[in-house]
Write a protein that binds this DNA or RNA. Structure first.
Lengths: 148, 148
DNA sequence: AAATACTTGTTTGTGTACGAATAATCTAGG
DNA sequence: CCTAGATTATTCGTACACAAACAAGTATTT
C-alpha cells in the first residue's frame, strides 16, 4: 500500500457529505414547488410556522445559520413579503420575525413537498438503513452541544 | 399528531447533512495546517497528486465541482503558485493542470492531516458505526451515476 | 466541405457560508 | 450610577455553488 493509496478523496467523510448535500439540494430544487425558494429559506419559514415569533439571531441558531448569513436570507424573504419584521419593545437591539399571511399559506402549501424531498433523498436506502443513517448522521451534526 | 409535528426541521436529511458538513468544515479549518487552504482546494491538490495531469473540466468532475466553481478554485491555487496551467496541444480548448514543486510538497506535508480530519469528523461514532455510516453515505452521494 | 451538435473554459448574477469589524443596546459588578 | 463585558443586527471581504449565456474549438452528420 503506497502513500498514494492512504488518502482517497472518494472515501473521505467530508467529500461524501458534500456530494450527498449537493444531491439533496438538486432534489429540493426540483420538488419544493417554488422556483425561488431555497433550502435555507424554507427552513426559516418552517421554524417560524412552529414558533410564531422569534428574534433574528435566535432563529439563526435554530436553523444553524450565522448572523451574517441570516441577514441575507431574511432580507430576501421579507422582500418577497413572506415574513414581517418589527422591533422588540423589550430589547431595542432585536428584530422580531414572524410569517405574513402570504408566508403562512405558502409554508402550509409546501410542507408536504418537504417530506417528499427527504424521502427522495433517502430513497437509495432501505427503510432500516434510512433509520440507521439518520441516527448516525444526527450524532455527527452536533455542532458543539448548543441545545435550545 | 398535528400538522406541525409532521415536519420537524431537525429530522430532515437535508438539514442534518448541512450541519454535519458545517461541523466537518470547522474541523478541517482547524486541523489542515494551512490557514488559506479550503476543503475544495485540498481536494484538487490531492487529485492532482494522484493523476499528475488532468484538464480543468475533467478534474472538476472528479472533485464534484461545476465548471464555474472550478474556475475560481483553480485561479486561487494558481495565484499561490501551487498548481501550473498549460494548454493541451491536442485540444486547444483544454487547460492541462498539474502540481508545482511547491504544491507537490505541500500536499505531501498535509495529507496525513487530511486523514486525521476524517477521523475526527467520524469520532462521535464507534468503529463499526463509522463503517456503516460511510457505506450508507456513499449510496446517498451518487449524483447521477457518472462514474469515471 | 459545410452545417449541426457538443465540449471546454470564462463571465455574470444570485444565494449561501463565515470571519472580522462596527454601532447600538443591554447586563453585571463594583 | 457607571463602566467593562456581552449580545444583536449590519456590513465588508473572501470562497464556494450553480444556472445561464458565451466564444472558441472539436466531432459528427450528411
Amino acid at each position: 500500500m503506497t502513500a498514494k493509496d492512504s488518502y482517497i478523496l472518494e472515501r473521505q467523510a467530508g467529500h461524501l457529505l458534500r456530494r450527498a448535500h449537493q444531491r439533496h439540494s438538486a432534489i429540493f430544487q426540483e420538488n419544493i414547488g417554488d422556483a425561488q425558494l431555497t433550502p435555507l429559506q424554507f427552513a426559516v419559514l418552517v421554524k417560524l410556522r412552529d414558533l410564531k415569533e422569534v428574534s433574528q439571531n435566535h432563529l439563526g441558531r435554530l436553523t444553524a445559520m450565522d448572523a451574517a448569513t441570516m441577514q441575507g436570507v431574511i432580507k430576501r424573504l421579507a422582500s418577497r413579503g413572506l415574513i414581517e419584521r418589527r422591533p422588540d419593545p423589550n430589547d431595542r437591539r432585536r428584530l422580531i420575525l414572524s410569517l405574513s399571511e402570504k408566508g403562512s399559506s405558502l409554508v402550509e402549501a409546501l410542507v408536504s413537498n418537504g417530506s417528499g424531498i427527504t424521502a427522495q433523498t433517502l430513497q437509495p436506502l432501505s427503510a432500516a438503513e434510512q433509520k440507521t443513517f439518520l441516527d448516525l448522521l444526527a450524532k455527527l451534526a452536533q455542532l458543539n452541544g448548543h441545545s435550545e
